[in-house]
Amino acid sequence: MVWTLVLRGLVVGAVAGLLAGAFAFVIGEPRVQDAIDIEEAASAHASLIPVIPAHISDWVVSRDEQRFGLFLATGLYGLAVGGVFGVLFATLRGRGRARTDYELAVRLAGALFLALVLVPFLKYPANPPAVGNPDTIGDRTAYYLVLLVGSALAMLAAARVAWAVPDGAVPWKRPLLAGGTFVVLVAVLMLALPAVHEIPADFPAQLIWEFRLSSLGTQAVLWTVLGVGYGIASYRAAQPRVAAQRA
């Protein structure tokens, strides 16, 4: 049973990752290239200042290979995330408030997208190449991970609050209590973590905006396909058994 659920997560996750990769390739990749062009031009200018190494041009992997590597990255990421999703699904099944596998899959994906993608994105949004200061990458990664883990824990706390509310309660009680728990915990975390302001003054604002939307869209495609796909697969897997029971 457990392994069926984990395997389902791996398969659906890999498909979700590849579809997210297709979205990122069509919508996001042109923005990455624009940003790299800006970065190259800037480092050509600043070649007398040795602080910032020319980033992309020194690399052994060509740009074309990196475009292919995009699918490798999103595919592997989707596979891994899908497997973890399957383990979580197996753990939560029958323990939370969701009444069907489909409902559980979609809610779980929504909760994870909110906690693992949207919250970190709001404070530390995705940046195209040429935006970050290479000296602060360690700090920025640490802030991002602290917010990610904290947000996941806040979601866990909110879920526990939601499960503690009985099914007979007034309909707004559960969402308000659980949502309130999540929002307050995340707000405290966000206010406590340092701000990062590193976008160069002359970097095109339009490009930042479009890149960030395409990044958020990439994650949205992945989590939507994962949640809905996993839910459909679970629903269909349960069908023959139901038919056999009725017969």
Partner: peptide, 21 residues
């Protein structure tokens, strides 16, 4: 693999929203 895989998956990292560089 040295930095081969790191570089190969570079664009994916940026578009998945991870701090990269």
């Amino acid at each position: 693999s040295g930095t081969f895989l790191h570089e190969l998956m570079h664009d994916g990292r940026h578009l998945l929203g991870v701090p990269c560089h």
